[in-house]
Design a protein around this nucleic acid. Structure first.
Lengths: 202, 202
DNA sequence: ACCTGAACACCGTTCAAGT
DNA sequence: ACCTGAACACCGTTCAAGT
């Protein structure tokens, strides 16, 4: 698992193949199968190993809303810091597994903010959806985009009488994804967590 | 391109291989290369064909905010309705290309709401991030999740003194993603589009 | 201009056989 | 219990050769 995780962290999720891992371990491909079953189970085990290794992040903020936001931003930062592992997890639909302790922390802050049950589930899913989305857009560094798909090329062909050219030009330039992700999470938190009744400190 | 799009729509993004497409066309794999260059360029062309075929969706709502929300929901619904093509586009980072006309419609409504330039760019990116994220979670139907990754299994192992068990149980159950996506978009729109100064009708 | 056949360097997976 | 070798059925891509 450690060898597999190392491959992913250094060379990306696609670099993790059964043959590659076997050769790193000085062993035959078929030996891997005896130990882990198949590639999907290997990935699950790698993601679980990574989750164990993650330090718990601390939550800041005075109001319940601020603390919910802070705990959600922790997930974003952790996922972004280990984007290769996040990409691996998302390729088999295991993002939930990757950030489980941080997700529990969000649920704890939601509880403190008076959001529980299905409402807490919805809020958490909304946070996770936004985070996953920003990673999908942030994953692909500008340089490695395929030909003809760089934003300035795509948007350079667009013109619409309802949209000023200054806006089109702005869309073609890259946004500050970190700031934008945290601001978006702020908006979603505000939409799903009621304002503190008495602005209680904690 | 039509043959390739048909494969994707019926059998999913992974089913589109150069060899499979060639055999569908009764031709050799290498012929494809003469026409499209490589797989990435093939995918770009397929996505562009799909975008051309999409009907323009209409925007509803009385206030500028409502119209922005409506135009963003159009993107969500279109992406979700053609999830196989969306998965294909996102696999090469071409989601922008897929929904370009609908994105321009969002920019037009943002302009009408007084949001332009970099602020419009940020708002559009926030919408697209949320939509992409919900698709990443919605793509994988419950049945095709790998063993040990079904929500009730993952969350069944979780227990935390700060989180009531009713909340854990709720998280293990699937959410109504359609409703949740539209509600999340509502929250993001509210965060990025100022309330109408005089509640003007349009 | 358009298509083919053969080849290269990869994949995940299975299965009988070894120790 | 653990590992190997050979094989099957796939990939994307290149390149010389055909018409």
């Amino acid at each position: 698992m450690a060898a597999a995780l190392a491959i992913v962290e250094v060379e990306g999720a696609d670099a993790l193949s059964m043959r590659r891992l076997a050769s790193d371990l000085g062993v035959t491909t078929t030996s891997i199968y005896w130990h882990v079953g198949n590639r999907e189970q290997l990935v699950v085990a790698v993601v679980e190993l990574h989750a164990e290794r993650q330090a718990r992040a601390s939550v800041t903020g005075r109001t319940p809303r601020e603390r919910v936001h802070s705990s959600a931003v922790n997930i974003w930062r952790s996922a972004r810091a280990h984007r290769n592992v996040t990409a691996l997890a998302s390729s088999i639909g295991a993002t939930t597994l990757l950030e489980l302790p941080l997700e529990v922390a969000v649920l704890a802050e939601l509880e403190a903010a008076g959001v529980r049950g299905a409402a807490a589930r919805d809020a958490l899913q909304a946070f996770l959806g936004c985070i996953a989305g920003f990673l999908v857009t942030a994953w692909r560094p500008p340089g490695e985009r395929p030909d003809g798909l760089r934003p300035e090329q795509v948007w350079g062909r667009v013109s619409d009488p309802r949209v000023p050219r200054a806006t089109i030009r702005a869309v073609a330039r890259p946004a500050d994804l970190d700031r934008l992700a945290e601001r978006t999470l702020r908006a979603v938190v505000d939409g799903f967590v009621p304002e503190a009744a008495r602005g209680g400190t904690r």
